[in-house]
Design a protein around this nucleic acid. Structure first.
Length: 857
RNA sequence: GCCCGAGUGGUGGAACGGCAGACACGACGGUCUCAAAAACCGUUGCCGCAAGGUGUGCGGGUUCAAAUCCCGCCUCGGGCACCA
């Protein structure tokens, strides 16, 4: 027997697997399919521990599925567009493609060194024109379907990245990538109208039973559906007179979820960015203070706002509107806490029921009219009895936003108020009746801003023509290729590049300008998983038959940081492509596993600046890929954060060594390396043999179930238990003892095979080497069927039970597993007879295989 | 503020409402060795010499039985946030 040497085995087998095309998945077989996918990486440089763990989980799932008889699609690729490549190009005076492809090669080698079972024939690289042309094609199809829009509005601008960002890419007012403070700018940009799918994106979360609850919750939060009503207020003069026939210009609509509080509206607010504002104050004494506030509001950054407690500011416009529910005149103010692009950008203020309005009313001494009270409030009886009493702001301690009883609310007084309340329904019904309100739903989700002012991305296939306007690039002209001769270090961009923008209008043939913005990299990652199903198609992004055959992804694995971004966009793409007739399913990812971060031993994030980074390459160099894989899996459940402690790795290496020797020993070819101490065979020894035979079945059952639940750590623990049982057995019987007994020879061979196969998804090199070298088999263990088990044989014929008195363990008894309840109880009573003596037995509970509980007092 | 999730030995972590701490790491003791490494054996929640007691963030409750279910807190992590 040779000693276990991963450094010799692993590279040799990796080469053999590659030469055999082991991971090339067959098309059109009659086996069931399984699509196992890990989120493709950004080619940032070396493989880090996050990659290693993420892809190890996927590899176990894929290898297990293959051995269970599935055709397994398990591809890999690179999310290759993005800013780091540009920054590197500037730094090294080279081209982003160079840096990108170099990193891809480095990572690809690392992945192979980990022994991952990827079908490399299906590699997808997002910056390859053969891939990105279809991203452009999808853009054109979205455009045809009215899902592309170019519009001017305030957008998030990252000054450091020199580009705009999507809402999803702004985290607490900062750029998701470089952490710079994001500014608001008014710019004309390209959007994908994801809001058209807001309702379905929300509803279909319910279908996703295989997704973690927190991810669904986060998406629901982000989509942010609010049911409410639009209510029309009408501009009036200072006396409260409204035009007899109000036109659209006289109406300002607000969105509210609390129409029930309309009687408490004491002022009215517009966002500083409101387009109506200037018309209301132009030429009046109010113009100056209002405009001053508008200017001041522009200077408040998102970061300042997020950091909370930003004091509210407002200014009176000198104008009034009439409240449709009671005809009351209320003043119109501008308030810097009103969000311009949510609802209508105008709000009815009800200070008694809203903390923000309350704060504003206090500051500017505006009336606070109490119209809703908690049922047990002490003011309630007095207000209820004395209709018409107006309590001033001095009397009213704080905003009451919860459900309550409406007071001072005309015909609605006494009704329940609150969101979706009786009062709310009644008020909206009345407004609808008079044509001054209607039910509506608002979403927090904004359209997806996809244009970026960067070079290293997928060019937006559009052309600007002076006569025809903005027109699409004809399909046959795709792809719009990125020019290769660009000097980013000298500050050159697509917009300043000589030649790129130059073109002719495809409609009228006149000289025109090409769009010089590129697409958000998240457009590339929104459909790559479909491309894997048909990666070399030159006529279409994919053949719908192939995509429908493999999709949806059965098991998707990636980081929690994409809970919203990538996962929401991908769901959106899937739904649009379904509506285009390309796909016949609604959701791209059936089961989602979000892995937790790998942290250092103290629980800190690994970072270069902290100097606490553990490189997978370095530990592979010491212990081999199999030990690293197994150790990662053993650290804990995938979805939890994992603390990497170098001290544990040698332990895993030791375990693999032990299995190596045990398998050889079981096969009778350990030679002088039979290291296990010999004990004379006897009754205890026979018990060890019996236990091993039982464990062989029990452990296969447990490992199978655990892998299916992604509990890889406990699956490995169970394999260790089988190995421990094998160790006891091998210590009890020497090679000669076993060779002389037919039953034992059979047990030896069976346990050796089971150990090798159970470990195959976890430590593929070790298993595959043992498969041929120790077990003397042919082919690859990857192609072998997963071991089966017999639940009957997994059961022990004798069990130890705890005997409790009132829930406290007082004794233990051993009984036959199938002993009748009466016998077990009799045995239990006897075991604790002295403790029960003189007491009255009230109840006896027998849980087979577990315990007997005697309740005696 | 709203919405999720998590608190178990020295450490990572196990545990369909049924013997808490599986499986490991570490530590301690031992075998082998001139010695060390490797390998192997044993001990290891806490208090206690022991009998025994006690124990899953804290306080209650349900139950024959609670880490697990319910109620109220505390702490930590994550998401959203002047979203009307």
């Amino acid at each position: 027997m040779k000693a276990y040497n991963p450094h010799e085995i692993e590279p040799r087998l990796q080469l053999a697997w590659e030469e055999a095309g082991l991971y090339t998945v067959p098309e059109n077989s009659d086996r069931p399919k399984k699509y196992v996918l890990e989120m493709f990486p950004y080619p940032s440089g070396d493989m880090h521990m996050g990659h290693a763990s993420n892809y190890t989980y996927g590899d176990v799932a894929a290898r297990y599925a293959k051995m269970r008889g599935f055709d397994v699609l398990h591809p890999m690729g690179w999310d290759a567009f993005g800013l780091p490549a540009e920054n590197a190009a500037v730094k090294h005076h080279s081209h982003p493609a160079l840096w990108t492809y170099e990193n891809i090669e480095t990572q690809k080698k690392s992945f192979s060194r980990m022994g991952f079972s990827y079908d490399w024939d299906r590699k997808v690289v997002a910056c390859d024109p053969e891939y990105y042309r279809w991203g452009q094609w999808i853009f054109l199809k979205f455009w045809e379907r009215g899902l592309v829009e170019r519009r001017n509005s305030p957008v998030n601008w990252c000054p450091s990245c020199a580009t705009v960002l999507a809402n999803e890419q702004v985290i607490e007012g900062r750029c998701w990538r470089c952490d710079s403070e994001v500014e608001k700018r008014d710019l004309t940009q390209w959007y994908y109208k994801i809001t058209d799918y807001a309702q379905e994106l929300l509803d279909d979360l319910d279908q996703l039973e295989g997704w973690p609850e927190r991810v669904k919750q986060q998406q629901a939060n982000w989509i942010g559906r609010s049911e409410g009503a639009n209510v029309d207020f009408i501009l009036c003069d200072a006396e409260g007179n409204v035009p007899a026939e109000p036109t659209d210009d006289d109406i300002i609509t607000v969105f509210t979820t609390r129409a029930d509080t309309l009687f408490g509206c004491s002022f009215f607010l517009l966002a500083p960015e409101s387009k109506l504002l200037h018309g209301l104050v132009a030429g009046t004494e109010y113009e100056a203070p209002v405009m001053e506030l508008v200017e001041a509001a522009k200077k408040v950054t998102a970061v300042q706002r997020v950091q909370g407690d930003h004091e509210k500011h407002g200014a009176f416009t000198g104008r009034y509107v009439v409240n449709p529910i009671n005809g009351e005149k209320v003043p119109v103010w501008v308030g810097d806490y009103i969000v311009a692009d949510y609802g209508t950008g105008a709000v009815m203020a009800v200070p008694c029921g809203d903390a923000r309005d309350f704060e504003f009313a206090r500051k500017y001494d505006l009336p606070i009219i109490p119209i809703i009270l908690p049922e047990d409030d002490e003011l309630y009886p007095s207000l209820k009895d004395e209709q018409g009493r107006v309590v001033t702001s001095v009397d009213w301690p704080e905003a009451y936003a919860a459900e309550g009883i409406l007071v001072q609310s005309g015909p609605y007084t006494g009704m329940r108020g609150g969101k979706h309340s009786e009062g709310e329904a009644a008020v909206v019904a009345a407004l609808e009746e008079m044509g001054r309100g209607r039910r509506t739903v608002e979403f927090r989700l904004r359209d997806w801003l996809i244009s970026r002012q960067r070079y290293w991305g997928n060019p937006i296939p559009a052309i600007h023509c002076d006569t025809c306007g903005v027109v699409p690039v004809p399909e046959e002209d795709l792809p719009v290729r990125l020019p290769e001769d660009i000097d980013l270090a000298a500050g050159e961009t697509l917009a300043t590049h000589a030649g790129f923008a130059e073109c002719t209008c495809p409609v009228c043939g006149a000289p025109a300008r090409r769009e010089t913005d590129t697409m958000d990299t998240f457009t590339c990652s929104s459909w790559y998983y479909m491309r894997y199903t048909d990666p070399h198609n030159i006529h279409a992004p994919f053949d719908p038959a192939k995509a429908n055959g493999w999709m949806p992804v059965d098991q998707y694995i990636g980081g929690i940081e994409h809970a919203i971004l990538h996962l929401l966009y991908s769901r959106f793409f899937t739904k649009v492509m379904r509506d285009m007739g390309l796909l016949d399913f609604d959701e791209p990812f059936t089961n989602l596993l979000c892995q937790g971060m790998v942290l250092d031993a103290h629980g800190d994030v690994m970072s270069k600046s902290k100097g606490n980074v553990v490189s997978p390459e370095a530990v592979i160099a010491e212990y081999g890929a199999d030990a690293v894989r197994a150790y990662i899996l053993f650290l804990g459940p995938p979805e939890k954060e994992k603390l990497w402690n170098d001290d544990g790795l040698p332990g895993m290496y030791k375990f693999l060594n032990r299995v190596w020797r045990q398998v050889h020993d079981l096969m009778g070819n350990a030679g002088d390396e039979t290291l296990f101490a010999q004990k004379p065979a006897g009754e205890a020894a026979e018990a060890a043999a019996k236990k091993l035979a039982r464990e062989r079945h029990r452990v296969v059952q447990k490992v199978s179930a655990d892998i299916e639940r992604n509990n890889f750590n406990t699956a490995l623990a169970a394999i260790m238990e089988l190995s421990n049982a094998a160790g006891e057995y091998l210590r009890a019987f020497g090679p000669e003892d076993r060779a002389a007994c037919e039953d034992k020879r059979a047990l030896d061979a069976e346990v050796a095979e089971v150990l090798v196969k159970l470990l195959a998804p976890f430590t593929p090199h070790l298993s595959d080497e043992l498969w041929r070298q120790a077990l003397g088999r042919e082919g690859f263990v990857y192609d072998e069927p997963w071991p089966t088990f017999d639940p009957e044989q997994a059961k022990a014929d004798e069990v130890e039970l705890a005997v409790q008195i009132c829930g406290k363990v007082k004794a233990r008894i051993t009984v036959a597993a199938d002993a009748p309840e009466a016998d077990v109880l009799a045995c239990a009573r006897e075991a604790v007879a002295d403790l029960v003596a003189g007491k009255q037995v009230k109840k006896e509970v027998y849980v087979p295989g577990r315990l007997v509980n005697i309740v005696a007092v």
